[in-house]
Design a protein around this nucleic acid. Structure first.
Lengths: 187, 187
DNA sequence: TTCGTCATGTAATGGGTTACATGATTAC
DNA sequence: GTAATCATGTAACCCATTACATGACGAA
C-alpha cells in the first residue's frame, strides 16, 4: 500500500478512536520502517496490476507502494508475542487484541490474563481511593470515580469471559459452544 | 505547593489513569506557568507556617512553593468555560468534568450535551462499521468493536442521566431527589 | 558515615502536529 | 482552465520521557 491510501484506511478503521495521522508523522514513519528493513518499495505495484484492490485502481503517478518484507513479518510476529509492561496498558492491549487472530492461543491467554491483572490492580486502587476520599470530594469528582470504577469492573468481567472461552477452545462471540475455530484467513 | 509535592499528589490522584509525570516535564511546565503569570513563587510559604498542610511540615530546604495568581484563577475559569473541539474528546471532557464543582450549571449542561453528541457520533460510526464489516472481520476484531460499541452506549446513557439530574437541579449521585446543591467548598 | 528520601533541575532524544511547498491527475 | 483531489514530502515547533547531575536532610 502507499502512504496516502494507508492514511485513509487508518482514518476509517481508527476513526472512532483517534484523529487521522498527520503526513508529517506518516512519511517519516514509513521511512523508518524501510530503513529498518521491515517494509520495502514494491516495484511490481507501479505497473498497476492490483485487481480488486481497495480504492481507485486506474491511472497512477509517482506513488510509492510498500510491501512488508520477510523480516518485517518476523518482527511483527515478535511484537505480537512480546510481553513488556506496556503490553497490558490501554493502548498496548488494544493493539495486541486487534491482532489476536494472528496469535496462538497460549499467547492470547497470557495477554488476556496480564491485562486482567492490570485492570484488577487499577480497580483496587480506585476502590480504595473511593472509600478513602468519599467524604472530602465533591459530587462530580465522586461520580467520575464511580464511573471509572464501573468501567474497570465491566472490563474484568469481559476479560473473564474471553479467558473462559479461550480455555474451552472457543472463539469469542455470543454463542458459547461452537466448533473450535476453523482458522479464517485474514482479510 | 512545590513541584515535588505536586507530583506526588498527581501520582496518587491520577495513578489509576496514567503513570507519574516526569520531572523533565513537570519543572519546565511550572516555569511556563510562571512565565505566563498564572502562578508565582509564594515567598511567605518558605517560613513554614502551613499548619495542617499535606505531608511533612517540619524542616525545609530550597523548595520553590508556588501560588496561583489572580490572572491564573481567571485563566483557569476561562479554560473551564471554553468550548473548543477538544473539550469533548476523552481527555478534555474528563478534565472539564473533574472541575464541574467550580463551573456553573449552564456550562455543565453545554459540556455534557456536547460530549453526548460526540459519543453518539462515535457510536453511530461504530454501528455502521460493525454492520458493514461483520462478514469480513475475524472474531476478535469483531469482539473488540462490539465491546467498544457497548462502552459508547453505556456512556451515552450515563450522560443522559447526568443531564436529567442537571436540568432538575440535582447533583449527580444515586439519590434522585435531594436538595438543590448547597454549594460545597472545594477541598 | 552512609543510605534513603526530599527536592530541583538540565541535556539528549524521540516523535507528533502544524503549516508549508510541490506537482500530477480528474471532473466540471 | 480551473478547482478539487491525489500524493509526497520538509521545516519549525512543541512537549514528553529518559538519564543524568546536584545537593540537603534525617535516620541507622
Amino acid at each position: 500500500m502507499h502512504g496516502y491510501e494507508l492514511r485513509k484506511q487508518l482514518a476509517t478503521k481508527l476513526g472512532a478512536f483517534r484523529a487521522a495521522i498527520s503526513y508529517g508523522s506518516l512519511y517519516p514513519a514509513l521511512r523508518r520502517l524501510e530503513t529498518s528493513g521491515w517494509i520495502a518499495e514494491d516495484v511490481a505495484a507501479v505497473g498497476d496490476t492490483d485487481v480488486g484492490a481497495p480504492s481507485p485502481l486506474t491511472s497512477r503517478r509517482g506513488r510509492v507502494v510498500y510491501k512488508i518484507t520477510a523480516e518485517g513479518k518476523e518482527h511483527f510476529q515478535a511484537l505480537l508475542g512480546e510481553a513488556g509492561p506496556h503490553t497490558y496498558d490501554d493502548i498496548g492491549f488494544g493493539v495486541h487484541f486487534a491482532f489476536f487472530a494472528r496469535t496462538d492461543r497460549e499467547t492470547r491467554l497470557r495477554i488476556l490474563e496480564g491485562r486482567r491483572r492490570t485492570v484488577e490492580t487499577r480497580r483496587e486502587g480506585m476502590r480504595k481511593s473511593l472509600g478513602r476520599a468519599a467524604e472530602r470530594l465533591d459530587a462530580y469528582t465522586l461520580e467520575l470515580q464511580r464511573h471509572g470504577l464501573e468501567a474497570c469492573e465491566r472490563e474484568v468481567r469481559w476479560l473473564e469471559e474471553l479467558i473462559v472461552a479461550e480455555r474451552s477452545g472457543n472463539q469469542p462471540g455470543r454463542a458459547a459452544d461452537t466448533k473450535p475455530e476453523p482458522g479464517r484467513p485474514d482479510p
